[in-house]
Write a protein that binds this DNA or RNA. Structure first.
Lengths: 185, 185
DNA sequence: GTTTTCCTTTGACCTAAATCAAAAAGGGAT
DNA sequence: ATCCCTTTTTGATTTAGGTCAAAGGAAAAC
């Protein structure tokens, strides 16, 4: 899914508006396993995934990675708090496959938000959608068993689940790789 | 904190705008333990808490309540997905104290979003703030021990934690009341 | 092809927190 | 003060899932 189609699927932008908005994004080919943001940095860019996939992860003191979110085709990818509040990121953000990505800076994004009421609305709608998804994950983690959490995962990220290493999925679901391996049988 | 002060703390509305916006809200006194939305209903209203507090909770099949969120003074309270996406609510929403609350319907809120670009921006900022808070809770639940989660709770809801029954807090933190009781010593 | 590296599975054991159950402590109402 | 009802604490036991360790498999590198 490309950027224009995605934007139009949410808000009825005019061709001119769409042209202006998309011109603020930069299209990039980013290879697999590229780090986009490191923990502690302030995220300068928001990414839209046209092709490929990414994940955000947290690095614990003991050196273990904990996947925080997966980002698939047709989604915005960022360290949300860092990008929108220009604060130091708690997470690393990386590509998991060779990807085609549209990126935009914080300044340009704010400019678009100010220029277009419709864009502001899009921002609100996308935020709410993300919010409900995070709440769903919270539910899964908070009051479901390991087995039920795996089912939630399959429903939320059907296409992603078989494309990434087991360990990434296990930590996303708040369990160990061993436990997930046993569950899958 | 009253509604006008809250709105002004986020966006510089003109006196006229502020007057128009707040006139769409209805001020109500709501007694303790009043149910505002039941599971399965579609949330018709968004609430702003001037005084008092509330919580949202999920009812499990075995009849146990699991607190999903606490809402304190100066915050918007709702079953987010239900209100903004007009879908059936997964949660109950109730007051935990006698409260003074401003409420607004979904239709009026949409009207304000359409009428004022600034209001749309406010909606986006509030959504993002909520999103980052939910992500913080997710972190606490996903990779912290019971003891650390309690500390997170004290930081996030300092004033609330000693005003509600232990069981509500325990379920909010994804642990049993017994465990929380043992931790507190 | 063979080797190296990474990823997944399996096994044995351990531990944090859940469950079950009952006692203790508060807090209103009368 | 006493009684009733709700909330919190304490104790004994169980369990889901974690940890540690090693063996298979699969895919990339040589």
């Amino acid at each position: 899914m490309n950027l224009s189609d995605f934007l139009l699927s949410i808000i009825a932008f005019s061709p001119d508006e769409l042209q202006d908005i998309t011109s603020h994004f930069e299209k990039e080919n980013i290879p697999k396993d590229t780090l986009l943001i490191a923990q502690g940095q302030i995220s300068k860019k928001l990414y839209f995934i046209e092709k490929g996939m990414g994940r955000s992860y947290y690095l614990k003191e003991d050196g273990k990675e904990v996947t925080q979110w997966f980002f698939g085709v047709g989604k915005f990818m960022s360290s949300v708090d860092s990008f929108f509040q220009q604060s130091s990121s708690l997470y690393y953000l990386e590509t998991l496959e060779d990807s085609v990505i549209y990126s935009i800076s914080n300044e340009k994004m704010d400019l678009l938000f100010s220029k277009y009421h419709k864009m502001e609305k899009l921002g609100r709608l996308v935020s709410i959608e993300m919010l409900t998804k995070v709440v769903n994950k919270l539910n899964a983690i908070q009051f479901q068993t390991a087995r039920e959490r795996y089912d939630y995962m399959l429903a939320e990220f059907p296409d992603i689940s078989y494309r990434v290493p087991l360990g990434h999925i296990a930590s996303y679901l708040g369990m160990t790789q061993e436990t997930l391996s046993r569950i899958r049988k």
